[in-house]
Design a protein around this nucleic acid. Structure first.
Lengths: 181, 181
DNA sequence: TCTTTAGTATAACATATGTTATTATTCTAC
DNA sequence: GTAGAATAATAACATATGTTATACTAAAGA
C-alpha cells in the first residue's frame, strides 16, 4: 500500500548521537544530521516534530549512556564514593560533549542533577546509600560534599584544568572522602 | 579634515559586555551589538578586525570584572579560602553568563584557570598563599582540593543545583576547609 | 565656500539554520 | 499492471549570521 521506510528512527538518533559526541549539541543541525544519516532532511521531520523534540530524546540517550558507562566501569576501590568519583571524572574527560550536555546545561528538561546521577537504572543511588549507611550519622551531607568535590574535578577535567594521573586521582578521592566523612 | 568619531571603542565594548551578561557570549552578534550601541555594524568592524577579536577583548574584560567583583566583595570570615569560595559561588550564581564564559569555556584564549583566578590584580593568589603558609605543610595540595570543591559548588550554582543559604554555605566551606587541611 | 576624507548607514553577498511545499519514487493492495 | 499512498529528495521560504561594497554625511583645512 505504501513505500517501505528506509530511514528509521534509530538511524536518525544514532547519527545525531554521533554528532553530539563529536561536536556537541549545538552542531546537531538538520542538514548535518541528514548528511550523517545519508538522507535528506525530510525523514528527520517525519520522525520528529522539530529539532527540539529530537534534542530532548538525545538528552535521554545521553543520560542512559552515562548510566551504562558507570555501570560497566571497573570498580577501583571498596569505597563507592571513590568509585563514583573516579568514573565521573573519567567520563567528563573522555566524553566532554556528552558531559557538557548532560551535566552543565541550564534547562536539562526538568531533571535535577541528582535525578541524572541516579537515573532509571539507579546504580549510583543504591551504592551510595549503602555506603553512607556505614558509620556516618549525616549521610546526605556527606553525599552533598562528595558530590560537590567530584563535580568540581569533573568540570575541571572538561576544560583541561585537571591533570592528575589515575593513581593520584584515586588517592585524592580516598583522602578527601576520609577527611570529609 | 574628516568626520568626527561618533561611536567609540568603549561604546562598542560596553554594549557587547551588556549583551554578554544578559544573554551569553553566543548572543553577542554583530547586528545585536549594533542595535545595542545604536549604530550600524560598520563601526564594529572599523574598531575590530572581526568578531573574534572582540570576543577576545570581552574575555579580558570579563576576567577583570571577576577580579573586581572579588576585590570588592565583603570578607565574611578570617579564612581566605572560605572568603574566596563564598565570593566565587556567589559570582557563579549572580553572573551566570560571565561565569560560564570565563570559567567553563574550553579555549579560554590560552589562559589557565589559575591564571584567571590570580589575574593581573593578583588578589586571590596573594591571600591564599599567605593563608596556606599558616601551619600547612602541603599548601599547594590544599589549594587544589579547596579549589576543586569551590569550583564544584560554583558550577552547581550555575545550573541551579546548589541551593544552600549564605550561612549554610559559609558553614560548609569552613567545615570543608577544616577537614581537608 | 569648497574639497577632502574618515566615519557611518544602507544594502548586499555568502553562508547557515529550521521548516515546509512540491515533486519524484517505490511499495502494496487490487 | 495499475492506483493509491507513504516515503524520500529537491528546492524553496524565512530568518540569522559574519563580512564587505557602496553611498552618504559631516568636520576640518584650503
Amino acid at each position: 500500500m505504501a513505500r517501505k521506510e528506509m530511514i528509521t528512527k534509530q538511524d536518525i538518533i544514532n547519527a545525531a548521537f554521533a554528532i553530539l559526541q563529536e561536536e556537541g549539541i549545538e552542531q546537531v543541525t538538520a542538514r548535518k544530521l541528514a548528511a550523517k544519516a545519508n538522507c535528506s532532511t525530510q525523514p528527520i521531520f517525519r520522525i520528529y516534530k522539530n529539532m527540539e523534540e529530537l534534542t530532548e530524546e538525545l538528552f535521554t540517550r545521553a543520560c542512559e549512556f552515562f548510566q551504562d558507562y558507570y555501570a560497566g566501569f571497573p570498580r577501583q576501590t571498596v569505597t563507592p564514593f571513590v568509585n563514583l568519583g573516579y568514573a565521573y571524572i573519567k567520563f567528563a574527560g573522555e566524553h566532554k560533549k556528552l558531559f557538557e550536555f548532560v551535566f552543565l546545561s541550564s534547562e536539562r528538561f526538568g531533571r535535577s542533577m541528582y535525578d541524572l546521577v541516579n537515573g532509571s537504572r539507579g546504580n549510583v543511588s543504591r551504592e551510595i546509600q549503602a555506603a553512607a549507611g556505614q558509620g556516618c550519622e549525616n549521610a546526605s551531607e556527606l553525599f552533598m560534599k562528595m558530590w560537590i568535590f567530584i563535580h568540581g574535578a569533573a568540570c575541571m577535567a572538561l576544560t583541561g584544568d585537571y591533570d592528575l594521573s589515575e593513581s593520584e586521582t584515586i588517592q585524592l578521592l580516598k583522602d578527601s572522602y576520609k577527611a570529609l566523612k
